[in-house]
Design a protein around this nucleic acid. Structure first.
Lengths: 194, 194, 194, 194
DNA sequence: ACATAACCGAGACGGTACGTCAAGTCTTTCT
DNA sequence: AGAAAGACTTGACGTACCGTCTCGGTTATGT
């Protein structure tokens, strides 16, 4: 490999700067020149690494997802493991620019590179939740339960604008795990499983 | 009121064209000139009505939300009413450009005009769901239940890329209403309701 | 039935307002809406009278030229008659908006309507000067003499930015009438009159 | 000096294209996009060099004036030197787009940038003519003589629409230099120098 | 050791979209 | 019916950003 190697200092600064700019100004409000300025480098350093703005955003997002390193499940209680996982996820989303960047990029799923990053991240979270839920005696509706829990996080972050509190997570986990008494004595008729 | 009045034909065409362009090309890919062209009018007709692109997008989104007119609850069964409401919502989101436009604009909540539209729409949906759930004997955790249901819809639409099927809705309603047996014999301790 | 005094008021106000706006802001800086505002009328009142902006400007210019009503020559002295004529012309150009309007429109001779007005005005001035100069015993080079005198006025107004003073006119008339001694003992050879 | 330097090819093409467009279509008829197209470059290349349309026009005009490089006076005869100078000037005005551009810009002297260019060009011509006329035994009325000669050129170009012929220049020079017999035996009385 | 190759910051290049403004036309209401 | 107000289409203006290219200069490897 000939020539001067790329400087990691520049590459790291670029990914971080991109995530912060995305979180602060949204995708449209983020400019290549602004990223370069914040990273203390130049546009050309960006285009030497990434083919275009979307690839840079995708890389920054993927890099940001690496910041979420959930603790392994304790296997004491499914509810407790879920609680620890979801609260850790919420903490990462609120305390790092990752949450803001996700908000900024969530509507660019029509771009394949962005979509791929989101998909991989979602798969990772599904897998982690599945590994917790697998410990329950019954695994019926597992995917629906996961959808409900991840939906709660994404709904809070993307739509309501703030991530649920620990108490809300606990109530939701209770409901999703079926730890509550039936509320409606007359379910719809003819549905499977009722 | 003196002078020539604004033509409703133009105003309506603009809002529709904007929604379609947003759904098809995303916010960044939507151009003022393109909207004018699709609406069969001119840029100036737009800027006479809306101060800028974001105001136009917000107005088009608000107009799009009016397209969802849920049937009134039948009061026969909470589960059935929820099912009808959610399926109707999903139907509107998939069969009109509203769903695409929401996807395109969901990451522009940092713009106050856009955020206000989303907030109002969400409030409307919360209210409708609350009016259904109010019929349950107990109203504990009502907001959390609503969050779970709306979260499922938004998660499906914004993150997974497709709105849940009728079957998925039914499973989720079962869980949220507590129509299932407890799955975990050991809930976390000290939480209310356990 | 008597005429329509209101209409004449509007027409006159339009021509005057146009001349003033042209003098103050130049042709490009003059707007139809601005003229209408200054004239206390509306755009439509303009377009009911003139097909477009250039026609309005041409009409205003032609109307402005009517403001120059030179005194008839006294026939006492050609030099004196020239002096009176040129000073009167200069006075009109500086004391009415005509001068400014001419400056503003002089570079629009490529528009036929404007050119026609200028041509007619120039012809009028040539004719007047010719009627003064016809009184000289010799009429050689009459057109060249007229060109020199009108050229002095137009050069002062259009290029130097101010109309010549009375003293400058007198010196120029002296030269043009040949009332000075030869300055160069060696004229070019072979030219007629040397 | 950091960064990529401006390309002279682009700068030159812009000035030339501007002059030609001005000469052909007038100032109002000249568009930035049209200039860019004719120069084979882009709007942005223009705005990187000039703050606005007037600055571009002023620069193009100043550049155009550089095209007139008069031959040095031969010092044989003042009349002959004047003739050579004026005919050379007329030749430049008719054979390059400079004349047309001057016509197009002459009415924009109210814009300081344009006025400054005209003023400097006029000063240059006054200086050249002064250096020729300085050789005459008497220098009385030198500025008036210069005004008459330059006025003839500008009158022909700006007002009459064509530059005087060589013969007309010769007659005018004769008059201005006083190489003709007095035409009016009765000058106005009491004027200085009569 | 030094030539080659790829890096670095800076900034010009051609393009495209935004938001403003004016011209000229059309439609409504008021007098 | 005409005046006033203000809508309409069209198209230029000046700004900002994107992605590419060029500049002078720096830093590693390979012969």
């Amino acid at each position: 490999m000939r020539g001067r190697p790329k400087e990691n200092r520049v590459s790291d600064a670029l990914l971080n700067a991109t995530l912060v700019e995305l979180a602060e100004g949204g995708y449209a409000g983020t400019t290549i020149a602004g990223i370069a300025r914040r990273a203390g480098t130049s546009k050309q350093a960006i285009y030497r690494r990434f083919p275009d703005k979307t690839a840079l955003a995708a890389a920054a997002l993927a890099n940001g997802f690496l910041a979420f390193r959930p603790d392994p499940p304790l296997r004491g209680s499914v509810a407790e493991d879920l609680r620890r996982y979801l609260i850790g996820l919420a903490k990462t989303l609120t305390e790092t620019p990752l949450g803001g960047a996700i908000r900024s990029l969530s509507s660019y799923r029509h771009i394949p590179e962005i979509a791929a990053v989101f998909e991989e991240a979602e798969n990772g979270q599904r897998l982690a939740l599945r590994q917790v839920l697998i410990a329950t005696p019954f695994e019926a509706d597992m995917e629906t339960r996961i959808d409900l829990l991840l939906g709660l996080v994404s709904f809070g972050m993307l739509v309501r604008g703030y991530v649920p509190t620990a108490y809300e997570f606990e109530r939701a986990i209770h409901l999703v795990l079926g730890l509550v008494a039936p509320r409606d004595p007359r379910p719809f008729s003819g549905l499977p499983g009722t």
